[in-house]
């Protein structure tokens, strides 16, 4: 049987300096001159699922409890679970080996239907405030937390991982078809702050610094 080729909907002008093949995805690990950021990273190859059940709080996913209220997130073992509403959560795999999907029809694999991006390092909230009115620095919210709303006029799910200016970061997803336009608008908004594409290695390092 032939292998399928899976392509990210994201493309940057610069070419990655180091790549690897993973589950038929070409994953950019490093770009030249990554320097200090801020960074925009394509994570579309990372597995994502939606999970829906009428009694969602009683379900455990990979041994993790579903967060209690909408907007709350839980990060454990390289997986982040985001409570969307009363009956749904989104689950994003961030680091480590890809987990097996539980044999449960409530899970829907949405990896191929959405774009998945990370924006982090210094000055990112100066960039985001040019693109959205969503409030990522809400002192009443503890990180990580989920916001669902327009980012550059595109409906997105956005998780704020850290609010501290020097190491702030967000992860976000939107429908796959918006990839080209959202990338163009983010890079344009971030140009004055030195925003540049980066590879997955930078994100893994940053996540390790953030959560060990």
């Amino acid at each position: 049987m032939k292998n399928i080729i899976r392509r990210s909907p994201v493309s940057f002008d610069s070419r990655p300096a180091k790549t690897e093949m993973r589950d038929n995805w070409t994953v950019a690990l490093e770009y030249e001159a990554e320097e200090t950021g801020p960074y925009l990273i394509d994570l579309s190859h990372r597995a994502r699922w939606d999970f829906q059940d009428v009694d969602i709080s009683k379900i455990q996913t990979w041994g993790m409890n579903v967060p209690e209220s909408p907007g709350q997130c839980l990060f454990e073992n390289g997986i982040i679970i985001n409570r969307m509403n009363r009956t749904q959560v989104s689950i994003w795999h961030l680091s480590g080996a890809k987990p097996d999907v539980p044999d449960n029809p409530a899970f829907t694999d949405v990896t191929d239907t959405t774009v998945f991006l990370a924006l982090f390092s210094k000055d990112i909230f100066s960039i985001t405030e040019k693109l959205t009115s969503l409030y990522f620095l809400d002192p009443l919210k503890e990180t990580p937390f989920l916001l669902q709303g327009p980012f550059s006029h595109i409906p997105c799910q956005i998780v704020t991982l850290e609010k501290i200016p020097e190491r702030s970061g967000i992860l976000f997803t939107c429908s796959r078809g918006y990839a080209r336009d959202i990338i163009a608008s983010i890079l344009e908004a971030g140009a004055e702050f030195g925003l540049r594409p980066a590879g997955e290695n930078v994100l893994i390092k940053w996540l390790n610094e953030l959560w060990g």
Partner: peptide, 8 residues
């Protein structure tokens, strides 16, 4: 309807 947000 929260069209650009949670869809509620």
């Amino acid at each position: 309807f929260h069209r650009d947000g949670c869809g509620a």
